[in-house]
Structures are given as structure tokens and as C-alpha cells.
């Protein structure tokens, strides 16, 4: 019983987050649904870059780590590097792919 109450309270406290989740699920499906197969690879790559938004979490971790907490500093630093790789690499690769889609007449 206590568990259920805990969960319900959690849902109520974060209700706008749950609304975002539901709406984004539908939006994500809607937006991708009409993609021609030509663009599947660039689209996957572009989506890959967008989930690189996890970098923001890494920045928060890094930026709020105490200067004597070496483990947090090192792991956070690593997370920032990896997240940046995901973001920058993802967008650049996608751009390179799409650059070649220019129509040549």
C-alpha cells in the first residue's frame, strides 16, 4: 500500500513531466512516420546526435562536483567528453551525409 501511495505521489509531483513524455512519444512517431527510406540513415544519425542532449546532465554533474571529490570530477569529465563526442560527431556526420544529397543537374 505504501509503495502504491509512493508511486502515486511521485506521478502527481512530476505530472507535467509525464505529460511531456506522452506528448513526445506521439510527436516522435508522427514526425518520423512520413520519412522516405532514402533518408533513413541520415535520420538515424540526426536522431543519434539529438539524444546527445544527455551532455547537459554531464555538464551539471561536472559543474556541481566538489573540488575534493576526485571520483565525481574524473567521471564527470569523462562524461562531458563522451557526451560531446556524441553531439558533435553526430551532427557533423549527419551534415556530411546530407551534403551529398544536393541535387546535381
Amino acid at each position: 500500500m505504501e509503495l502504491i501511495q509512493h508511486i502515486l505521489r511521485g506521478v502527481t509531483n512530476h505530472q507535467e513531466m509525464f505529460y511531456i513524455v506522452i506528448l513526445m512519444i506521439f510527436l516522435g512517431i508522427e514526425v518520423i512516420g512520413r520519412v522516405p527510406s532514402v533518408l533513413h540513415t541520415p535520420l538515424m544519425s540526426g536522431a543519434n546526435a539529438i539524444h546527445g542532449v544527455v551532455i547537459i546532465g554531464a555538464i551539471i554533474v561536472m559543474g556541481s562536483a566538489h573540488s575534493d571529490n576526485y571520483i565525481a570530477l574524473i567521471l564527470g569529465f569523462l562524461a562531458v567528453i563522451l557526451g560531446t563526442l556524441n553531439v558533435v560527431g553526430g551532427f557533423v556526420v549527419t551534415d556530411r551525409m546530407l551534403e551529398m544529397f544536393k541535387k546535381k543537374k
Binding site: 513524455v21 513526445m24 512519444i25 516522435g28 512517431i29 514526425v31 518520423i32 536522431a47
Partner: peptide
């Protein structure tokens, strides 16, 4: 994408949540 969205929940960060779930849903459909 979903893992990134978990971070969004953790920090109450809506841009992480939006981006993560968007990719999670779109990726699943793809």
C-alpha cells in the same frame, strides 16, 4: 534516447526529457 530522458527526470530538465523521449519514440518507430 530513453537513457537521456532518465537524466531529464533526475534533474527536472525538460530539454533532456524532450530530446530523449523524442528520439526514443522515433527510434522505436524506425
Amino acid at each position: 534516447g530513453v537513457a537521456a530522458a532518465c537524466g531529464g527526470f533526475l534533474y527536472g530538465n525538460k530539454v533532456m526529457l524532450t530530446g530523449g523521449i523524442l528520439v526514443g519514440a522515433a527510434g522505436t518507430l524506425l
